[in-house]
Amino acid sequence: MPDDRELLDTHSSRRLLTNALPGTAATDEAILATEETTAADDVLSKKPFGFLFWFAVCFVGVILLSAVLANVLPLQNPNFQNYSALSQGPSGAHLLGTDDLGRDLLSRLVFGSRVSLIVGFCGVAIGLIFGGTAGLVSGYRGGRLDGALNAFSFIILAFPAIVAVIAIVTFWGASLFHITIILGIATIPLMYRVIRASSLSFAQRDFVVAAKTMGATDTRIVLREILPNVIPVTVTFSLITVAGLIVIEGTLAFLGLSVALPTPSWGNLINEGTANNALSTDPFIMLWPALAMFLLLWSINLIGDRLRQRFDIREGLL
């Protein structure tokens, strides 16, 4: 099993990347003879982000903005049942159509995005605040506390998240607050492990040792020397985790274990779209949230992946 320190250490990933360039040891020798570092990997990482990346950024931006401004936007009440417009296709009055109770699908879609986004971003924020801080310190300080925390995080991660979440939600009750807290807590050990590994690799670097010998305090070293270096991995991993949490929330909602109806969320909208023969009578109910979910996940993953390439982090078990 590859050591996660190696997977995350940007320095060794640079080496791996160099190795992945065309050629064998013989080529390397030839290239080495000309200059010590190949300029090639720099070229690779400075590759422009490209159209798709900016498209993804825009899409996430639009979704975020509409979720925040949902109350201000000229949208109907997502729960208003217009009995004169049942199960309609897209039209001028209802851009995405209506469901079998005459509710406006666009409005439900926009309001539903709030659940996914709150769970995704707030969950990761909880994970970052607790797990990230612990990982940063634990990786830098090492010692017994580090050993204990590390072992503990392993045990927590051995738990299949979905089962844990379902069990807890069952006994504690399904609300947006509960689900965000539970998923946030589940994120803590993940964040801890990734940031600890990264922090650990930097704690042993020369510049940190140099800062130590110059008498810098531990706090200063962690904040000034280690934190800035850990940020690339953190940002990349956080994005991937946001996508992961959105999937888990969607799964829960699809199973009817997330926010209670009639409050819309993408997961329960998809579920509604599959219930009562709706797939054959009105596939739009399912299609819009499914499409939105696909595009959102795709965008977040793409942004994360492009940043990973730019930051030169090896694609491992991140």
């Binding site: 030839a30 290239i31 090639a40």
Partner: peptide, 11 residues
């Protein structure tokens, strides 16, 4: 020779 980003290396 190898084609590299920097130019052709005549090994």
């Amino acid at each position: 020779s190898f084609r590299t980003q920097r130019g052709t290396v005549r090994a």
